[in-house]
Write a protein that binds this DNA or RNA. Structure first.
Ligand code: FES
Ligand code: FES
Lengths: 144, 144
DNA sequence: TTATAAAAGGACAATGGGGTCTTTTTATAT
DNA sequence: ATATAAAAAGACCCCATTGTCCTTTTATAA
């Protein structure tokens, strides 16, 4: 569904929150290994996310990544907006400039409800809700 | 939702079928202009689709693109498979190698039904069904 | 106060997506 | 047969994505 950067960002942040909930602040090497992502690239991505304020980091011995519990949760929409953009779940499936019930493309009436469900998903779910989802084991092997 | 190549391919083919239904075999210049796509790139894409047998072409004076009515319809899934691949609507939204109710990622139970709806859409709709959709005007302006 | 562990930063590189342009081939109208 | 109209083919280009690697900064532990 999403591009590599978004996937790595998603998995990284969920892993960080998951570990934070166990009082651990994981470092880059640990994160990259656990989420099965290239560590240098993951470092680049997290560096950006820290700059954006989505997550915090501590340098030096005993450092690592962590969330400030006083900050609002990071929704998937927030994250995706900052990486690949929301084109995937906003805008016309046919590529038209405007999407409008009054000027529908041939896909409109079938596609619009699905797109709306996607939008609801990314706006309602957050790094925190995913990290605390009791019905999941995210430490599965990751794709090629 | 889809990448440029898929969008241009989609719009081109729907336009060709639409014109064919009016006994017209449009050429590249006309197609590219109507669907608001770069004509040289559109030519490349259609060239590939002809090689793949999705659509036919006639060279020389009075030539153009057309569908063989005796061939089976081209589903969106067929088309997408031949361009960007089906990663967008198949596979795990979190990027895991396998998607499985028994080993769900944190997105699985919310994402799987939406993905299933997308799969149904691309498998049931075809260039022909879209071209003959009475509730649409695809000749709207197209995105940036 | 010095060694060490960790993140930050920056330069570089491979690949694919998204395109342009020119030449070649093929068919048709005259 | 020849001029013309059209698609096919191939060389090339730019830039975003997806990375790697090396140096620098910062914090802590001993
Ligand atoms: S106009 Fe295309 S999805 Fe609405
Ligand atoms: S395991 Fe991720 S969507 Fe099914």
């Amino acid at each position: 569904m999403f591009n590599k950067e978004t996937e790595y960002a998603l998995r990284s942040l969920v892993y960080i929150q998951h570990q934070n909930d166990r009082n651990i602040r994981p470092g880059i090497e640990e994160i990259a290994k656990e989420i099965e992502a290239p560590h240098a690239f993951t470092a680049k991505i997290l560096q950006r996310l820290v700059r954006l304020g989505f997550v915090q980091s501590a340098k030096g011995r005993g450092g690592g990544f962590f969330f400030d519990p006083n900050k609002p949760v990071v929704t998937l929409h927030d994250l995706i907006q900052s990486t690949e953009g929301t084109r995937t779940y906003e805008g016309c499936g046919f590529g038209l400039k405007t999407c409008d019930d009054a000027h529908p493309c041939p896909l409109h009436f079938q596609y619009a409800p699905i797109r709306a469900a996607l939008q609801k998903l990314v706006r309602e779910e957050s790094i925190q809700s995913l990290a605390r989802n009791p019905h999941s084991h995210f430490k599965a092997a990751t794709e090629k």
